[in-house]
Structure formats: C-alpha cells, structure tokens
Simulated scan of single mutants.
Amino acid sequence: MAKLSCFSIAFFFLALVFAIEVSHVTALDATAAKYRPTGGEGSLRPEQCAGACDFRCSATSHKNPCLQYCNQCCQKCLCVPSGTSGNKEECPCYNNWKTKEGGPKCP
C-alpha cells in the first residue's frame, strides 16, 4: 500500500511539473507572437518597436547594437521582420536602409 501511495505522489508531481512547463511554453509563444509583425511596412505603432526589437534581437550575442539599430529602423519604417534573423523582404524600408559603407543598417 505504501508503494502505491509513493507512486501516486510521484505521478501527481510529474503531472504538475508537466502542466507548469506547458503553460510556461504557451505563455512564451503568446508573448513572441505579440511581437511578430505580420502586416509589413507600417504595421507597427512606434510604441510597439521596443517589444518587436527585443524579440528580433533575442538570439544575437551583440544585443545592445542590435537593439539600437533595430529600434532606429523600426521608428523609421514601423516594421520589424518576423523571426530573429532573415525575412527582411517583409519590410522593404527596413531591408533597403544602408550604412554609409553600403552595408545593411537594420539587423
């Protein structure tokens, strides 16, 4: 009887941990989806740029410059491409803004 009780407690604990993990992942997905623009140029309001750029720059090891340039580009273009890299064709303004040297300005 004691083994059944320990098994039941262990099963309950594992089910609880799983439920917490699933809800945490769902919350992260919902937060990320909130900052994934889908409308292209002009699809964001200026106050949404910080969140969109936080997501855009989340995978880089050069976070500060990425955030600086992303926010600058977002304020001008009101668009940030989806994902943490690539997809710049979604935002032509963001994609076509170049540095003095001719390289991409926006991350």
Score class of each variant (00 low, 15 high):
63 K>N: 11
69 Y>Q: 13
66 C>A: 12
3 K>V: 12
22 V>I: 07
67 L>I: 00
3 K>S: 13
66 C>P: 12
41 E>L: 03
36 R>V: 02
55 F>S: 13
34 K>S: 13
57 C>S: 10
107 P>S: 06
52 A>C: 07
11 F>R: 04
14 L>C: 14
59 A>W: 05
45 R>P: 07
91 C>L: 05
70 C>W: 01
101 E>K: 11
33 A>Y: 01
30 A>M: 06
59 A>S: 15
104 P>S: 15
39 G>Y: 05
79 C>T: 03
57 C>G: 11
100 K>D: 12
7 F>V: 06
79 C>K: 01
5 S>R: 15
106 C>A: 09
81 P>Y: 06
44 L>N: 06
42 G>N: 07
77 C>F: 00
8 S>R: 10
101 E>D: 14
89 E>A: 14
36 R>A: 08
10 A>K: 07
69 Y>W: 03
51 G>N: 12
18 F>A: 14
42 G>L: 03
83 G>N: 10
81 P>N: 03
38 T>Y: 08
60 T>H: 14
31 T>A: 15
97 W>E: 11
19 A>N: 10
48 Q>T: 00
99 T>C: 07
6 C>I: 10
86 G>H: 08
104 P>M: 00
49 C>R: 01
35 Y>S: 08
103 G>F: 06
83 G>K: 04
39 G>M: 03
11 F>A: 15
87 N>G: 09
18 F>Y: 12
101 E>P: 09
8 S>L: 15
56 R>N: 13
57 C>D: 10
74 C>V: 02
101 E>M: 09
86 G>N: 08
35 Y>A: 10
71 N>W: 04
58 S>F: 05
